[in-house]
């Protein structure tokens, strides 16, 4: 009986001892503001590229990926480029064989470019020109035949 009580007392002591030891470790949280780059990838239908695989290449090393990751369900991916490597960072997004590459200048002016630089109106006009060229070809050869 006495042995049992002793065992319980030792157990309690030990467990308190362990838990106080765990509480004794304070947590130190520091913060630092950084410039992050958010990529948002969507198909030209406007549908986000959810789950697309992202590969980030640092400037000067296009062979080895600097970071790989996956887009969230809104087609977004955020990463913090290493500011000690200024230049053009290449970000490649790929999903089921679809994808593209975007060039992000880091260090100098932070501006992104990529995708189709045309407005819908321009696209329609361009398509109309091509179609007219093809219809014109058809009319020309149809006339020759007659």
């Amino acid at each position: 009986m006495r042995k049992k009580q002793f065992a319980v007392a030792v157990f309690l002591l030990l467990s308190f001892g362990v838990s106080t030891a765990a509480f004794a470790h304070g947590v130190r949280i520091a913060y630092q503001t950084k410039t992050a780059v958010e990529i948002s990838a969507a198909y030209d239908t406007g549908e986000p590229m959810a789950g697309a695989q992202v590969t980030v290449y640092a400037p000067g090393n296009p062979a080895a990926p600097w970071l790989t990751g996956v887009c969230d369900k809104h087609g977004r991916f955020t990463f913090v480029p290493d500011l000690s490597q200024p230049g053009t960072w290449d970000v490649r997004v790929r999903h089921a064989g679809h994808g593209g590459i975007i060039h992000v200048p880091v260090g100098e002016a932070l501006a992104a470019a990529g995708g189709t630089p045309y407005s819908p109106l321009q696209l329609v006009l361009m398509a109309a020109c091509v179609i007219w060229g093809l219809v014109g070809t058809a009319l020309f050869f149809a006339r020759r035949k007659g």
Partner: peptide, 26 residues
């Protein structure tokens, strides 16, 4: 065959704009 081919090239050219949603993709 050129008039026919030319018109169908135009159809092929614009057909890729006609999207059909098949979840989860289109």
């Amino acid at each position: 065959g050129i008039p026919k081919a030319s018109l169908l090239t135009a159809a092929f050219f614009v057909a890729s704009w006609i999207h059909i949603p098949v979840p989860p993709t289109s």
